[in-house]
């Protein structure tokens, strides 16, 4: 990964925008931004300390060729996919998707920060959901609660005890999931095969893209 990172840095020295357009999903929309700031102002998570650069600023940084600042940014991981920016953008830029695209790209080239909570959630969720083809909510919650250690995990679990019991009583949470039981999709191996195929295709696509970009 870090090798690819260096290659890209060399290849796109003066044209980070092009790198993003080619490598990040929906990256071709970055150039369409007119810097009105509606996305930045619409974002409900703006209060979070991790929000160093909102979308409109990230887009400008990309256009200014500020590769390091963008790849070091926490901004694109903060998105909660509320789609406020997406539906309001006067240029119809799919801001949410672009931000995810940039985050995914940064992750792919090994630039994602360690212990980034959104990233952790995303990875955990993915692993969990792909295991049985359906989310195991208890295990997912557990892994999130205990990510910072046993002590804080127990504390969080106690805090949420009432809500959890309520969900169980209402039949919305199956405690047996803790043991790996609970709902699964019918053809787990089938899902695994499909996902493997999708991954293979995507890798091929990305490799092809990187290849063409390299030929200039």
């Amino acid at each position: 990964m870090s090798n690819l990172n260096e290659q890209m840095a060399d290849r796109y020295k003066n044209n980070f925008l092009k790198e993003i357009e080619e490598q990040a999903e929906m990256g071709e929309w970055v150039k369409m931004c007119m810097q009105c700031g509606l996305c930045s102002g619409s974002c409900p998570t703006h209060f979070h300390s991790g929000w160093d650069h909102p979308p409109q600023e990230i887009f400008m940084l990309i256009r200014a060729g500020k590769r390091e600042e963008v790849l070091n940014s926490q901004g694109m991981y903060m998105c909660t996919s509320c789609y406020n920016c997406y539906v309001r953008c006067p240029r119809k830029v799919p801001v949410t998707h672009v931000m995810h695209g940039i985050a995914e790209y940064a992750y792919r080239i090994g630039r994602a920060p360690k212990a980034q909570p959104t990233l952790h959630l995303s990875k955990t969720f993915w692993t969990n959901a792909t295991k049985y083809g359906r989310v195991n909510e208890v295990q997912l919650t557990q892994s999130l609660y205990f990510k910072d250690g046993i002590g804080s995990g127990i504390k969080k679990a106690m805090e949420m005890q009432k809500e959890a019991l309520g969900l169980v009583m209402a039949g919305r949470l199956n405690p047996m999931e803790a043991l790996g039981m609970g709902h699964k999709c019918k053809d787990v191996s089938g899902i695994h095969k499909m996902l493997a195929k999708a991954e293979e295709l995507e890798a091929k696509n990305k490799a092809a893209k990187a290849d063409t970009a390299g030929k200039e």
Binding site: G41, H46, H53
Partner: peptide, 11 residues
């Protein structure tokens, strides 16, 4: 009015 002054990112 809620938003961001894009000249310097001022909320």
């Amino acid at each position: 009015c809620n938003g961001v002054n894009t000249e310097g990112y001022l909320r």
